[in-house]
Design a protein around this nucleic acid. Structure first.
Lengths: 196, 196
DNA sequence: GCGGGAACTAGACACTGTCAAGCGGCCTTG
DNA sequence: CAAGGCCGCTTGACAGTGTCTAGTTCCCGC
């Protein structure tokens, strides 16, 4: 078998399995079965079950970092850039639900124990921090407010908890976008009030 | 055994177990062991594992509803009331981490499938909706923005993801409070701008 | 006193994650 | 070319899980 070929196959099988059956449907042995190997073969590439999930977490943070960076570079206006980052955050969560859930559920992966996951997470965070500083340099609270808003929207959306707000996934997605731009206009209104 | 005595003991043992070992440490058989009964006894009070967790979810939403209502009644000013509700939301999450996580993680409990959990959730939601309407009656977006902010803060706090923002749990808690009041001042500034 | 059901126990089954041991082929070294 | 060793993988085992099926014990209404 090609070098690390099985490693990649295991990760792909894991993602497919989680996509089909949800996080609780993930199982070492089922992954091995889907990869067409014995139930112990994956242990030659990952020390244990959590290591597989940690690799997915690292991949997730890397993707989030990259798409955040792309959104950052595409929008020159500082206030709109923060909103664009929020949109990228939500888009990422919806496009990679398995990754996203694992990234923020310590009962599945204790991300801080896995070096590459932590490094990728730091990279993604830095983009957001830079964008928040560009809006108001001396305000450490803005980054937390913006992040929490985007994170809350993404998790509630992903868990289907917004049925009471809007009916159906597309309407919920639109509502989330509206909340983001609402936040942007709140920030802008404050900036104008201070400025004039 | 007294009627429903074991039912309560099972729930308490479950919460204690989750508190000690986390969600992933929860096990039907260990709960039975701690309740001092055979591994099958709990099945006489709950159809399956998820039903135990669903009962915890219902209890959680009931508590959240009650403490939200208390916060609502204690604060007459509409804008400050929304912030107070956000504070109550975060306090609830920190005081009942096992409840809170289960309430919003569909891989453990599909809350919508359990009637009493759904009813209690609706009750809690109504308090928030009423408070948001009091701030601005014709703005369906405000409730989602406020809820998402509080929810994002609570989950990030609970998962220990704010280490990059502030070091140590007390500082992170303070940062979350700051984000909430920052949001309140954003909303107030907008209201003044519109008013004048 | 008796039938029936409710609360509980005991045993089994298929499944899980992981440890230990074994096997075949390639790479290095002699 | 032969020998040794390691790497990737397989097989088998073990303890633990959720849940099904079958008992057992005890109380309550007739």
């Amino acid at each position: 078998m090609k070098a690390d070929d099985l490693r990649r196959r295991v990760l792909d099988a894991s993602l497919a399995l989680i996509g089909e059956k949800g996080l609780e449907g993930f199982s070492m042995r089922e992954v091995a079965r889907r990869a067409g190997v014995s139930h112990q073969a994956p242990y030659h590439h990952f020390p244990d079950r959590e290591a597989i999930l940690a690799a997915i977490v690292a991949e997730g943070f890397a993707r989030l970092r990259d798409s955040s960076r792309a959104a950052f570079d595409a929008e020159p206006n500082a206030a709109r850039r923060l909103t664009a980052l929020g949109g990228a955050y939500i888009d990422f969560a919806l496009a990679n639900p398995a990754h996203f859930k694992l990234m923020f559920r310590s009962e599945w992966v204790r991300a801080e124990k896995h070096d590459d996951a932590r490094a990728c997470a730091a990279g993604a965070f830095d983009v957001l921090a830079e964008a928040a500083r560009a809006v108001s340099p001396n305000d450490p609270t803005l980054i937390l407010t913006a992040w929490s808003l985007a994170h809350g929207l993404a998790t509630l959306l992903l868990e289907g908890k917004l049925e009471r707000i809007a009916s159906g996934a597309p309407a919920q997605r639109a509502a989330a976008r509206a909340a983001l731009s609402r936040f942007q206009s709140l920030v802008s209104a404050e900036a104008r009030a201070k400025g004039g």
